[in-house]
Simulated scan of single mutants.
Amino acid sequence: MSVGPDLASAPAPLRIDAVSRAELARVRAEARLTATIADFFLDADARLDERTRLRLAHVLDGIVGAIEADIRRHAARLLANAGDPARGEAILKAGASVVARLTRAELLHDGDLMDELIARVRHDLIADALPVAITGPDESSLLVRLASVPDTVVASAANALLAAESRRRTANETDAIARSELPAELHHRLVWWIAAAIREGVPDGSAASDRAIADAALRSLSAHDEGDRPEAVAMRLAGAIDARPEELAALLVEAIGDRRLSLFVAVLAHSVGVEFDQARAITLEPEGDRLWLALRAADVDRPTIARIGLALSDADPRRDVEAFADALDAIAAVPVADAQAALGPLSLHRDFRAAIRALGRSDRR
């Protein structure tokens, strides 16, 4: 029995449209199957858990949406001021989802961008889940105390970190992500991708629309200050504190106990001479091998490593607390000089490390 219009007797444009849609549906089905198969065969430690996946989607949608809205609004304002409000209105309303368009183009598969966002999401989730261990019932949290010290450089940086982390926490808990808080290079890359996707959706494609979109994108770039990111502020605070060797263990433990994972990462990074993203990466690794090495390179003792390891195990279900307990004596026995030597490559400039990796890949071909 025939259901719906007879395709053979339909007008040619309708037949062409139906055939095109059917072909698109076939392509989508094949792509969906390929992705499902790839996901099924992923190792468990490579697969994002549902909580991380949902938070990552929220953060990515929020960042792209905030940049897109800024570009559309400012481009429309520029065109309206130039006496062309109709084109401005078209930019405000034109085109499908920018996130969907960038996803189809696989631009959001960018390794640097996703590495940063996944690390950021995991960092924030673990920070939220850390057990609270304030020194005493009448003791203020570490960051609040640092914000009140006589040293104005430390106090200013601590207040800035309080504000930055509050802003990040609010953005994570609501749909109010108002800025990307990405490193400058990644923000630059993302802004131009979004501008290109907006342009593609504008029906007239005029030179005036192109100029307005480009000028709006440049405005977004000029307004971005990567120094406001919690990660950058935490590094400034760690540098201002400049903990002495005998102060380091207590500071790391208290930062963890205060659920200030960004400060823990920054203090560790400052103490062993690596960048924040490197210290964050080794802190988030569920195995913990490089973190224990970094702590030994900073001459952190066994009890301190144990407290840090247990706190992180409480907050991150991927960690094997029994394996950590079994390895603790061996970790504590690593000589500081050996740990520092092993950690040496991480202290190299990121571009130098990338060049070394690129040469290594070429040798394996």
Rank of each mutant, 00 (worst) to 15 (best):
E116C: 08
I308N: 09
H224T: 01
R55F: 14
E254W: 00
I177H: 07
L190F: 04
H74Y: 09
P11E: 03
G83V: 01
D128R: 15
E23P: 04
D329V: 06
L248V: 09
D110C: 00
A214L: 12
L54P: 06
D204S: 12
D314N: 14
I256E: 12
D316M: 08
E50H: 14
I256W: 04
I282E: 02
R365W: 11
P5R: 05
L190K: 03
G309S: 04
A306R: 11
A255C: 02
T52Y: 05
P5A: 07
R302W: 06
R28C: 03
D320M: 04
L33N: 12
V144Y: 13
A323T: 11
L295Y: 03
A147I: 05
V3W: 13
F40P: 07
S206R: 06
L130M: 00
A332W: 03
L261D: 02
G65K: 05
S262I: 04
S97Q: 04
T34I: 14
A266R: 05
R26Y: 12
D338Q: 06
I194N: 04
I126G: 06
R32Q: 13
R280H: 08
R296N: 04
D49F: 09
R307H: 10
P317G: 10
R302I: 07
A197R: 01
D45I: 10
L142H: 05
L312P: 02
L218M: 14
A250L: 08
H188F: 13
D351E: 13
R145H: 05
D151F: 01
R28E: 11
A212E: 00
V191S: 05
V132D: 11
I177C: 05
I194S: 04
G344D: 11
A178D: 08
D84N: 14
S262M: 08
T283G: 07
S166W: 06
D258F: 06
I63S: 00
P183E: 07
E68R: 03
R318Q: 11
A38N: 09
I118Q: 10
R353E: 00
A10G: 01
R47N: 01
D210T: 12
E226C: 06
